[in-house]
């Protein structure tokens, strides 16, 4: 059975991806602080007859990424499918943005995914099979006020993924980006009812997105049958970016 590593799987979109993939793969539930929540996700997968393990890491720290991979490889040999999902926001308008706000978001959302992908790709090359999926954002395509740092990090993932797809295509490894729109998670819980209505107004499908909307696409891209889809950016946003 193939092994999947989902970063940021303790909550939100990552949790939904982990539960969906738990039906077909061994799933490593990555988390940074929420150990109890991550353990619950792993337990839920096991209850449904799957195999799972929660692993702590800070994707922004290379040593921490290395330690997590060492631990995973001890138990499961290699990561066949990497879902780069963990991400943060530190919003501010450009004239007020602090260096820390810029650096933290770039280091976590962009550089962190460089660390995890580099670490995973070597075994995939050796195996001549692999899947990399990056959870970017429509904000990386369209930009957003107050999110220059976040948009830059998410746009950066598109360049990273497209380059990887060209480097390793000859080894049956695909790399794709999913760009979610507004999805109901902790990250969007600050949006009040009025703003929510305004957002839904702009969409073709008149509801907020659910984590499962993303998880279904991830599951599809992981399959052998999806081997001809690579280097792509797939928005899942209810029609926001048409």
């Amino acid at each position: 059975m193939k092994t999947v590593f989902v970063t940021g799987a303790s909550r939100g979109i990552g949790k939904s991806i982990a539960l969906e993939l738990g039906k077909d793969y061994q799933v490593i539930v990555g988390f940074s602080n929420s150990k109890d929540k991550a353990d619950e996700v792993a337990e839920e997968i096991k209850k449904l007859g799957g195999e799972s393990l929660a692993v702590q890491l800070n994707i922004a720290d290379r040593n921490s990424v290395d330690e997590a991979f060492n631990l995973i490889e001890k138990t499961y040999k290699q990561v066949d499918i990497l879902i780069n999902n963990a991400g943060i926001t530190k919003d501010n308008i450009l004239p007020r943005m602090k260096d820390d706000e810029w650096n933290d978001v770039i280091q976590t959302n962009l550089t962190g995914n460089f660390y995890t992908s580099q670490r995973a790709i070597k075994k995939m090359i050796k195996n001549k099979w692999g899947r990399l999926i990056f959870i970017s954002s429509v904000v990386g395509i369209s930009g957003n006020q107050g999110q220059a740092n976040y948009a830059a990090s998410k746009a950066g993932l598109i360049g990273l993924s497209k380059s990887i797809s060209k480097e390793v295509g000859s080894r049956n490894i695909t790399s794709n980006v999913i760009a979610p729109g507004y999805i109901e998670t902790d990250m969007t819980s600050f949006i009040d009812d009025e703003n929510r209505e305004n957002i839904i107004e702009q969409l073709s499908i008149k509801r907020m997105g659910m984590p499962e909307d993303i998880a279904n696409m991830v599951s599809f891209l992981c399959k052998d049958e999806s081997e001809y889809i690579t280097g792509q950016v797939i928005p899942i946003d209810g029609g926001l970016t048409t």
Partner: peptide
């Protein structure tokens, strides 16, 4: 052997 091939060989 291409550049990825060298990576494979070194790992081996």
């Amino acid at each position: 052997i291409d550049s990825l091939g060298i990576v494979e060989v070194v790992m081996a």
